[in-house]
Design a protein around this nucleic acid. Structure first.
Length: 198
DNA sequence: CTTCAGATGCTCT
DNA sequence: GAGCATCTGAAGA
């Protein structure tokens, strides 16, 4: 396997966010079931200068502790009391920054992902469900069965059951950028074009 | 297609 | 106690 290495994540967060598009996110469940999807949308969060980042200004709390972990660590947190968001820690260790995985399309075992996401078989999904399969951070975590149990996992090896394969490296001309979603409280940072998608 | 309310619990002040 | 890196179903255009 060609699991993306720590060096991949230990770069500028905006570079990593763009470079993750088209890559294959793999999730291996406890029973050995393998799920995977291709990443189509990401957002960058950089604690050093970004008011939208949980660790803005190097703020350390129990929750943000994971952002200070080595690059290539999974940061998963609960949002709005019922959904989870998956992030990958970036930059050199001690620089709190991460890439939020906002959207994907199923790659392997879509049947099982559909079961986790909607509780029905792939072929029973409505057109509306197909269009809104994994196009949001909470939807993606539901489909891949990701919860805070995965917080702190090492992404750079197969041991944690969560890693990224090279997939299709993004064509730079295909990468679009825009404002991030759901961070209206972040003052000047609301306009940072740190959301990337294919 | 659009808007809108409500769900729900953790996190930090 | 307030707010949150969201999603869904219902209702209207």
């Amino acid at each position: 396997m060609d699991i993306l290495t720590r060096e991949f994540y230990a770069r500028d967060t905006l570079t990593v966010a763009r470079d993750l598009l088209g890559r294959e996110l793999v999730r291996v469940l406890a029973d050995g079931t393998l799920l995977s999807c291709r990443i189509t949308e990401t957002e960058a969060y950089i604690g050093r200068l970004d008011k939208a980042c949980h660790a803005y200004g190097y703020k350390r709390t129990p929750r943000t502790e994971t952002l200070f972990a080595p690059p290539g660590t999974a940061y998963v947190y609960l949002i709005y009391g019922m959904y989870h968001c998956l992030n990958f820690v970036t930059e050199e260790e001690g620089e709190p920054a991460a890439v939020l995985i906002r959207g994907a399309v199923p790659a392997a075992n879509g049947t099982m992902i559909a079961q986790n996401r909607f509780g029905c078989k792939l072929e029973r999904m409505t057109a509306y469900q197909r269009k809104n399969f994994l196009n949001g951070p909470g939807k993606l975590c539901k489909g891949l069965v990701l919860t805070r149990e995965q917080n702190g996992l090492d992404l750079t090896g197969p041991g944690g059951g969560l890693y990224v394969l090279p997939g299709v490296p993004p064509d730079p001309s295909a990468v679009r950028a825009g404002r991030r979603i759901g961070i209206d409280y972040a003052q000047e940072a609301v306009d940072f074009p740190w959301r990337f998608y294919l």
